[in-house]
Design a protein around this nucleic acid. Structure first.
Lengths: 239, 239
DNA sequence: TTATACCGACCGATGGTCTGCCATTCAAGC
DNA sequence: GCTTGAATGGCAGACCATCGGTCGGTATAA
């Protein structure tokens, strides 16, 4: 094979790109290093020049994910025209809007990320994402406590609960995908809608707000997300 | 090697025992099948006679864990002298008492189970445990709704939140163990105590109960658990 | 005899190592 | 300014131990 020398940063990003594609489609364990280096058109020596191990590659991938996700919500956090409740709602709304707007790619990503063989991958991404998001949430909650909007004695704990709720939808969606049939999907959609409403009220009460203050998603949004996904899958099958 | 024939059930349990020991000390991925069969004093053929794959072994192990855990709380669920709130509190209290009473073995188990390389193992056990516990919790919550004690429109959702709270302590304890120093441990204990109180109030409000109804652990219990663990570790180090 | 419990050599694939080559850089010599 | 030299770092790919898993066969129990 001819020797090709590229800018180190570019090479690194390329490796991450191909690794991401393979990890998501085949799972972290099933996708081999040989697959990755073959896709990237690179030798084993080159790979180990950039990453100390397969695990280090996974870590770097998770960190890149977290960085990108964080960039998507940074402007909400910086918006000075929002009060703490508005900020929190915007943050929740943004994370849901991102799921709908970027439906095609995002769903391909989520659909694979939710498969059981991607547990490790998913967990690592969440770990990195939590490390980025938690401080933001804590700051917002602290602001709310100071100006009297929120009432709680453990802002870090509440931030963790918010993130827990976000992740908990994982298992429900995973079940919906696992089932496969349209009936399973419909059941899963209803369960998810109900669950989102529960999370809203739970957060209201944990933060000492009147019921209905927190808005994670307006009614029907779960169905919108899921049906968007179904159409996407159908389109793919037709192609 | 001489051929030894044992009662199938005994052989199976032996394999599970040795697998458990190895998975917990080295992690699921790191502990190889060869390690397991060497520890059990069995050939590869014998292993595959009992388990279809390494994954099947993990599944069987998780199910055995879940069965044992469930057996420990079954009598609380069967006690006719308890109202729903009492039943729920007893269940939470029991799961915490189990952690203290069986401190030496349980802590050795938890300490290893909380290590990052045991993510897969931990998740599988939780999956199996959830499948067993959730229906119990749902039944109790349903009873409470019927007799007017609890007020919620999503008993399954609340049951999931209860289990989430139970598992969420995982990360905090893991951090405490990761730190290692006594100062880290003291900080972790305080965080955990505060978090437990948050979870109590959160559950009160989610279930429409007056603050202070749910009792996960009396003040100081976390410290009792953690110091019990520290003594155990110190004893081991001395031996 | 049949069926079950068990043995252990064997297999392809995997993550990781190692030796060494090749392209670039840059200073020394002309 | 131009060639040369070694040094450096990016990169190639053969190689390795070990992994999960298969298979043909043997010994014991019913």
């Amino acid at each position: 094979m001819p020797r090709v020398i590229k800018h180190p940063e570019l090479r690194r990003e390329e490796l991450l790109d191909h690794a991401q594609a393979l990890f998501l489609t085949q799972g972290y364990d099933k996708a081999s290093l040989n697959d990755v280096i073959a896709a990237a058109g690179v030798s084993k020596g080159a790979f180990y020049h950039y990453f100390a191990s397969k695990d280090a590659l996974l870590l770097a991938l998770a960190e890149r994910f977290a960085r990108q996700a964080l960039a998507g919500v940074q402007d909400i956090f910086d918006d000075p025209g929002l009060d703490p409740l508005g900020r929190l709602n915007s943050l929740l709304a943004q994370s849901r809007r991102a799921k709908i707007d970027t439906a095609p790619e995002a769903w391909a990503l989520f659909e694979t990320l939710f498969r059981p063989e991607n547990l490790v991958l998913f967990h690592r991404i969440n770990l990195a994402a939590s490390a980025s998001f938690s401080p933001l949430l804590v700051k917002i909650i602290r602001q709310g406590i100071e100006d009297g909007t929120f009432r709680t004695f453990d802002p870090e704990g509440v931030a963790d609960i918010v993130m827990q709720f976000g992740m908990a939808t994982h298992d429900i969606i995973a079940k919906a995908f696992a089932g496969g049939s349209d009936a399973d999907m419909d059941v899963a959609i209803e369960v998810l809608e109900k669950r989102v409403r529960l999370y809203e009220i739970a957060l209201d009460r944990i933060l000492g707000l009147p019921d209905g203050s927190i808005r994670i998603g307006e009614p029907g949004y779960v169905r919108a997300v899921m049906t968007a996904r179904r159409r996407t899958s159908a389109d793919k099958a037709r192609a």
